[in-house]
Amino acid sequence: MTLQVDPIDRKLLRLLQTDSRKSVQELGDLVGLSASACHRRLKALEERGLIEGYRAILSAERLGYSMQFFIEVGLTSQSETALEAFEAAVQDIPEVLECHLMAGQSDYILRVVCQDHDDFERLHRRLSARLPGVARIHSNMSIRTVKVRTGLPI
């Protein structure tokens, strides 16, 4: 369901995607609203579900996670029970940053981070042994990140 967004809301959303640390006063000044009017708009955007949260983007490499993998997972069954069991189990693995249910060759694609090759081997064994219904795993190592965009093109 697409919600209607006016030009001021769009500008607020673009500004927040760029820097969510700006104060309500700063945001208001940039979009031509008072701080109180800007605050009301932000609350309305949050209540409508257009703003899901605010977060810091951390440096994986500086925190020791120098390796990133995209892991394709095929399950033995695509039943609702099998999918739910897999999805519940993957929630408990902190190295899994993203998990996407796919249409196509793989049932899921996981984006994971690891500190080194040994860390990846431990994670790979953990994925193979602990995730229910796994028939096959195919791992792809990211050599270099070319583009990351956390914001949407609004």
Rank of each mutant, 00 (worst) to 15 (best):
V31F: 08
V148Q: 13
A85G: 05
F120V: 04
L15G: 08
K22L: 14
E80N: 12
L58A: 11
S23K: 09
L127I: 12
F69N: 05
L12E: 01
E72C: 01
D92V: 05
Q17E: 05
H138K: 15
D19T: 10
A37C: 00
A82E: 08
F70V: 09
H100D: 02
V73T: 05
L30I: 07
I71D: 00
V146G: 06
A135M: 10
M141T: 07
S20K: 06
D92G: 11
I51T: 02
D119M: 10
L15T: 13
I93F: 02
S20N: 09
S106W: 10
T2D: 09
Q17I: 00
R122L: 04
G74Y: 03
G151P: 10
V5S: 01
D107Q: 05
L42R: 13
S20Y: 04
L30K: 07
Y54K: 15
I143H: 04
A103S: 09
A88L: 11
T81W: 08
K22Q: 11
L101M: 14
S59N: 13
K22H: 04
T145M: 05
C114R: 02
A60W: 00
V146M: 12
G133R: 01
D118P: 01
L101H: 09
V113P: 02
L12H: 03
T76Y: 08
E95I: 02
L75M: 12
I71K: 02
D19P: 10
E80G: 15
S77W: 03
I57N: 11
L58E: 11
Q4L: 01
R14W: 04
T18V: 11
S139E: 06
T145Q: 13
L16H: 01
D9P: 01
E72P: 03
K147H: 09
L27K: 00
L152N: 11
H39V: 00
R130I: 08
M67Q: 12
C99H: 05
E61Q: 13
P7Y: 04
I154L: 11
H117R: 14
Q78L: 09
D119R: 04
L83G: 01
S59V: 10
E61W: 08
R149S: 11
R144D: 00
I93G: 03
R10K: 14
L75N: 02
R130Y: 08
A60L: 13
K147A: 13
S106M: 14
Q78H: 10
L63E: 09
K147V: 15
I57Y: 12
G151H: 12
D19S: 10
A82G: 08
Y54Q: 11
S66T: 14
S77C: 06
G104T: 05
Q4R: 08
C114F: 05
I51C: 08
V148L: 13
I71C: 03
S23I: 15
L12I: 13
S139Y: 03
M102T: 14
V148F: 07
A88E: 15
S36M: 15
S142D: 03
M102G: 07
Q68T: 14
E80M: 12
N140D: 08
L63A: 06
K22W: 06
P94V: 07
P153T: 04
A89Y: 04
Q105Y: 06
E95A: 12
G53H: 09
I71R: 01
L3E: 01
V90F: 02
V96I: 15
E61S: 13
S23Q: 07
R149W: 01
S23L: 14
E46C: 14
I51M: 08
C114Q: 01
G64Y: 01
L152Q: 10
A85W: 09
K147M: 10
I143D: 00
H100M: 06
